[in-house]
Amino acid sequence: MMWKMKRLLVFSLLIFLLFSFFLLKLNFAQEVMEEEQNKITQAEENAEKIVPSPKDIKESIGIYVFVVWMWIAIIVLIYILRLKIKEVDRLFYIRFFSAKKK
């Protein structure tokens, strides 16, 4: 049980590290955006920078639905994978396949 807790800790730490790494980039992106808002007059003059975003309300709703659906599917798949992992590990530890071969 201790071992599992440890593993969980390491996993969550890794994911946190990964995220914090990209949060850094996000912060940086926000700073740049703020800087740009200060220079908004200049930006209006050029008005050539393309900042991508959903075209219309339909597309942005579609995107939210997609993201939610994707995470639900991923969580369900991981749940099933966990069951499958348990099954194959058990089969391996009781030497199901190697016994059959003999």
Binding site: M70, A73, I74, I80, L81
Partner: peptide, 11 residues
């Protein structure tokens, strides 16, 4: 599993 994976791939 296959069903969910397939659905995810289709999306």
């Amino acid at each position: 599993f296959g069903g969910w994976l397939g659905a995810l791939m289709v999306s």
